[in-house]
Design a protein around this nucleic acid. Structure first.
Lengths: 333, 333
DNA sequence: GTGAAAGCGCTAACAC
DNA sequence: GTGTTAGCGCTTTCAC
């Protein structure tokens, strides 16, 4: 493997000059530069980024800490779309991505900081992490630049990108109300998700603004899972048959509700209106197709990467970004 | 940031001893080792893998060259599942993954080899690459250990993992035949995909073995796209109304065929039977749900990573792995 | 405009 | 069992 030393020898200059020539410094004779470039090409030279990282103390890599990369997380293409967005943004930069394999199991008991420091990543993007995840605290405490997806938390080195979950939930509930519904239940994810907390707030605010009372009994958690949502929906609808519409904090759960409704013989949307959240691919393909609040997941990832890179290059002081949601009306409402 | 030098100073030994102690060499006094470990912990030491990589000429990273990580590739969770499998396998190893951001556009005109050499990855996994992709030739020519997903190509440094596409296609067609169909068309992907070539072969062999004649006109390409498949299916079915069943080389295309059938007023499966390939998430959720040939995509990725790691550690001489497929019968047949 | 020399943090002969 | 020394490939003062 060719090194700048080889090039220096062949071109009859010093390694210093080679380095400067190849890195586009101005204080090098155009002729010398040209010759060096030719030799480099001739010798099929590739710079060694490892060596460069060592001396520069910058690796030009972004660490990705992504949960739900297991066999189960696959149904929901949320994570993947975010990943694609991150990938796209970093493709236009000079940063590469390193995917930390974080199986919570295993002796993989390395802390977040250890992971990052060992690999010398310049910054990190965290996605799909729960608010009580021990990693999260570490992020805030560490001095490694970091962007969180869907957890609004900010500091000198921490930024975030998310959608307006309160507003999104409101849109969903207002839509149900505008369809004439008054008895609107909600199936939420779990308390450890920031988005759940906010979507609940949006739900309550929408009810309030329309002079509808909030029934604590009509609020249940489905843990963001289809099966679980189906189960709790059955129970809920049997106990409170007066419920005419359900707002779900995720499409996957809404799919579960659809199943529950079918099982109970309630027609959609006549006997029961259902609206989800996310607009995952499945939402458009289910029968009936699912009304939902669309999040631009790709953009979520894209902006997260842009934000982080800007932080790394010291460009901006704004460390957060809120992305719009969109109401998508389909057959289920 | 603490280095072994710091540890050496505090512990009153040389850096060599620190290195050996921390790396678990046997020729070091247990007491010395203990003290060094304590100091390391106390100083909150993390090894610098960059420095280690430089001297060892091994980075303990695997490069991922994945196409379809763009906004469009999202519907199809194939890529993501493969990725999850790779991630899982590498989580149990000491390798991390670096995702090469390969937008074919942009000045990103770095060759495959350059990408790999610059980042000093130990090996690479390629997924979603076409047979005429210039990268592919480079792989074979380069000496970087590499595992291909779904391209059977083997050499000293190149291995692959795939499913038995001929057999899978046969299963699909035989299933249609066992349902009583005789006029079976095929919508294939494109000629640049090895899987297409093989699935076509399976289709033809199954016909042959059942004394059915192969009609070249009943074979069209849908480019693995839903829209395209819908378009060509409409045309095909109008021109040859005698066709009673269609075998599609991917579920996404089968979904397109479903739409075409609906548009033409042909009931499924009574008027037209459709079978896909892959078993993507959507297949189970569409109406009617889609019969298909399931590929264990997660396992495809998992085995690819295992294979590569084994190659890197010089463990095996077998460089390929064929994974079984499974016929999934649903409502569309 | 160019080169000599030092050093990034680590491993690995080779001595002792 | 431990230390000395050299060196991985690169960037960067600081001279000239």
């Amino acid at each position: 493997m060719t090194t700048i030393k080889d090039i220096a020898r062949v071109a009859g200059v010093s390694v210093t000059t080679v380095s400067r020539a190849l890195n586009g410094y101005s204080d090098v004779n155009p002729k010398t530069r040209k010759r060096i470039q030719e030799v480099a090409k001739e010798l099929n030279y590739s710079p060694n980024t490892v060596a460069r990282s060592l001396v520069m103390k910058k690796s030009k890599t972004i660490g990705l800490l992504v949960s739900d990369m297991n066999r189960e997380g696959v149904k929901d293409n949320f994570t993947f779309e975010v990943l694609c967005g991150i990938n796209e943004a970093s493709a236009y930069s000079e940063y590469d991505l390193v995917l930390f394999s974080t199986t919570s199991s295993k002796q993989n008991e390395k802390t977040y900081t250890q992971l990052c420091r060992e690999r010398r990543v310049d910054g990190v993007i965290l996605q799909g992490i729960k608010t009580d995840d021990p990693y999260l605290q570490e992020v805030v405490d560490s001095d490694i630049p970091c962007v969180l997806v869907d957890i609004p938390m900010e500091s000198q080195t921490v930024g975030y990108v998310t959608t307006d979950n309160i507003d999104g939930a409101k849109k969903a509930v207002n839509h149900l109300i505008s369809c004439g519904h008054k008895n609107i239940a909600m199936i939420n994810g779990h308390e450890k998700a920031d988005v759940s907390i906010r979507r609940l707030r949006g739900y309550r605010e929408a009810l309030e603004q329309n002079d509808l009372t909030f029934h604590p009994d009509w609020l249940v958690n489905g843990d963001f899972k289809e099966d679980e949502a189906e189960k709790v929906a059955k129970k809920l609808l049997k106990q409170y048959p007066e419920i005419s519409a359900i707002f779900c904090a995720s499409d996957l759960m809404a799919l579960g509700v659809l199943k529950a409704a079918k099982w109970l013989g309630r027609k959609i949307p006549e006997d029961l209106a259902v609206i989800g959240y996310d607009d995952i691919t499945l939402a458009a393909y289910s029968t009936p197709s699912l009304s939902t609040i669309r999040q631009d997941k790709f953009n979520l990832g894209f902006e997260a990467a842009v934000l982080l890179i800007d932080m790394l290059e010291g460009k901006k002081q704004i460390h957060s970004r809120i992305i719009d949601t969109e109401l998508i009306i389909r057959e289920s409402t």
